[in-house]
């Protein structure tokens, strides 16, 4: 009985020590990950600024004209097409459509 109590006591002590050590170990791990997160966030921000600078309209226009030899569209060269909403089908159109689908179904 006595030895069981001693063993259990020792186990408790070991468990307590192990728990404390593990908390400290995880603490360091968390800190390392946090530092890594900060570095990654910093890199992300730097890349975002770079992306934003590279996509500036002024730069794109410069590259398009100077490097690629493009020119702004001249008058009348741009046609904007707005698809208009089709009118609702007439009863006759619905009837024809039904006939076609029925004919397809029969085949």
């Amino acid at each position: 009985m006595k030895s069981v109590v001693i063993t259990a006591g020792l186990c408790l002590v070991f468990f307590f020590v192990w728990e404390r050590v593990d908390i400290v170990r995880l603490g360091y791990h968390i800190e390392r990950l946090k530092a890594q997160k900060v570095l990654l966030e910093r890199e992300r921000d730097q890349l975002q600024v770079k992306f934003s600078a590279l996509t500036a309209p002024e730069r794109i226009a410069k590259v398009a004209t100077d490097k690629l030899g493009m020119v702004p569209p001249q008058q009348g060269q741009v046609l904007i097409v707005h698809p208009q909403q089709a009118p609702p089908p007439s009863l006759e159109q619905v009837r024809i459509a039904r006939t076609i689908s029925t004919a397809k179904g029969e085949r």
Binding site: Q75, V78, I80, V81, Q84, A86, P87
Partner: peptide, 24 residues
């Protein structure tokens, strides 16, 4: 005005409008 209206996709008054009509 000319460039901004083109950029915004505003149609010219004399623009041809293409209607999407279901085939009959």
């Amino acid at each position: 005005g000319e460039q901004v209206l083109t950029y915004l996709g505003v149609s010219r008054d004399d623009q041809v409008k293409i209607a999407m009509v279901a085939p009959q």
